[in-house]
């Protein structure tokens, strides 16, 4: 085998490992979802009695910060609540919020286009609405 064939074989092997790893990562996601739904402690902890009150009169953090970082906040909230069962967010002013999309939609749901206006303008396609009901789909 000459050097180039060896190189091609290495490339093909690398590609195969990559595809396999990706496949199992994806498969792993689906597996974990059903496990949570059945009997995980997280699922049990989720509707914790006396959850944090939803203060829907103002936003959790300043508007300027939210404009740039809301996706990071939501991503962290999802991880904290779904994976770790920690459902309460405390902002720098010491106010408590439920780590839930509903906290946001408590105010922002009143405008069905709230999320879409910017996302359309900026050409970004977040995957939130693959699972969640978007403000546009919720009957007003």
């Amino acid at each position: 085998m000459n050097k180039f064939s060896k190189f091609l074989v290495a490339l093909a092997a690398g590609l195969a490992v990559f595809v396999a790893a990706w496949f199992f990562m994806q498969a792993g996601h689906y597996g974990s979802v059903s496990a949570h739904a059945e009997n995980s402690p997280v699922a049990a902890a989720a509707p914790a009695p006396g959850g944090a009150p939803i203060d829907s009169s103002k936003c959790i953090l300043p508007t300027e910060y939210m404009r740039a970082h809301h996706m990071q906040v939501l991503n962290k909230w999802r991880h904290d609540s779904v994976r770790e069962g920690n459902r309460t967010y405390v902002n720098p002013q010491g106010e408590h919020f439920d780590k839930s999309l509903n906290t946001c939609l408590g105010c922002h749901g009143s405008n069905p286009m709230f999320c879409f206006m910017c996302h359309e303008f900026a050409n970004v396609k977040p995957t939130c609405w693959d699972c969640h009901l978007s403000p546009m789909e919720v009957p007003q």
Partner: peptide
């Protein structure tokens, strides 16, 4: 670090 994309666009 993030930026606000709206004024960028």
């Amino acid at each position: 670090t993030k930026v606000n994309i709206m004024p960028v666009k």
